[in-house]
């Protein structure tokens, strides 16, 4: 195995574990301020985590091992995604490429774990959340794959690091219409996948609207901690991916301390900006009716599809 890659993985995962709760904290804080509230502070997610890990874990009668295993799987898959996606650097293991399809599959593994956790308790809310979650996940997948496919065409590889490296090498390609179409599509998909506005309102417990929160209702203690951390990691990794594709600069091409430091800083910056922007945007958005969500996703799919076909036409002249 490549030692550099190993270092990078450790760094990336560690940085993401630190950063992603902060990211959530920043987003909540921005939102609170813009809504005229004081907010709980940027570190509140960290405090929540610590609190949850200290609390006892309850398990309802009739639930199975899924309640315990699901959170671990979700966290593990999110961590793996963090390890695979080029966030800080682009060095990869020779045998574990950051292949687009592998990343998406690993992500979906977490999605499934979460959905099963939602179903396991047998409450109506859990089922509802799980059902909606899976419906959206199913509809998001074509957009994700096709949009990254569009980005991969100029590179000729489905490896994310190769795509990012190519974009660093040729910055003009970022501003190309193909790239923009694909990025917009991907962003919509990321919003849907991570349960942000306008698909899901992350800060509500109204049964008509909630998706993510409904699934974690029955979890407590460390289970809930893992679930929350896992979800935050996902959010962080996906936003980080968008960041890496949109603004590839700063990403470490090799594993040296300065390069990594720059990479980490760049990542923190990107995440902060994107997160704050997202939070600001959410304030002005109303949540969509659930059955309007497919329209949004269909729209993003069309964008992604256009990106692919356009890229062929562009490539062929």
């Amino acid at each position: 195995m490549n030692a550099g890659a190993l270092v990078l993985v450790v760094v990336q995962v560690a940085v993401m574990v630190v950063l992603s709760p902060l990211l959530v904290g920043v987003m909540r804080q921005v939102r609170a301020r813009m809504e005229g509230r004081a907010g709980a502070g940027v570190l509140q997610p960290w405090r929540d985590l610590r609190k949850l890990l200290g609390k006892e874990t309850l398990q309802a009668d009739g639930t199975s091992w899924v309640m315990a295993a699901g959170p671990v799987v979700l966290l593990g898959s999110s961590a793996l995604v963090c390890a695979l996606v080029p966030l800080v650097g682009t060095t990869t293991f020779p045998l574990v490429p950051d292949d687009l399809f592998v990343v998406v599959s690993v992500l979906l593994l977490g999605t499934v774990a979460l959905a099963l956790v939602g179903l396991d308790a047998g409450s109506a809310f859990g089922g509802m959340g799980s059902s909606r979650h899976m419906t959206i996940a199913a509809l998001v997948e074509p957009t994700v794959l096709v949009s990254v496919y569009a980005l991969s065409i100029p590179v000729g590889s489905s490896a994310l690091s190769a795509i990012v490296e190519a974009r660093i090498a040729d910055p003009a390609s970022i501003a190309s219409p193909v790239s923009l179409l694909a990025l917009v599509a991907l962003s919509v998909a990321v919003l849907a996948e991570t349960g942000r506005m306008p698909v899901d309102n992350p800060s509500t417990h109204l049964e008509l609207t909630m998706i993510h929160e409904a699934m974690v209702l029955e979890s407590s203690g460390r289970d809930l901690a893992w679930l929350e951390l896992g979800s935050w990691l996902r959010l962080g990794a996906l936003l980080g991916l968008v960041g890496s594709l949109l603004v590839p600069w700063g990403i470490a091409g090799d594993v040296t301390v300065p390069a990594l430091a720059v990479g980490v800083l760049a990542l923190a910056l990107k995440l902060g900006v994107i997160g704050a922007g997202l939070a600001a945007g959410e304030v002005f958005l109303a949540k969509l009716r659930l059955f309007r969500v497919p329209e949004l996703l269909a729209g993003s799919f069309v964008l992604a599809f256009l990106a692919v076909t356009a890229s062929y036409l562009v490539v062929q002249g």
Binding site: L108, A115, T135, A138, E141, L145, Y149
Partner: peptide, 20 residues
């Protein structure tokens, strides 16, 4: 691309079907 979309949609729906 249509095929990719089809396979992706299929995979997504399969996920839902089997989680269900």
């Amino acid at each position: 691309p249509v095929s990719v979309a089809v396979v992706a949609l299929t995979a997504g729906l399969a996920l839902l079907a089997f989680v269900k």
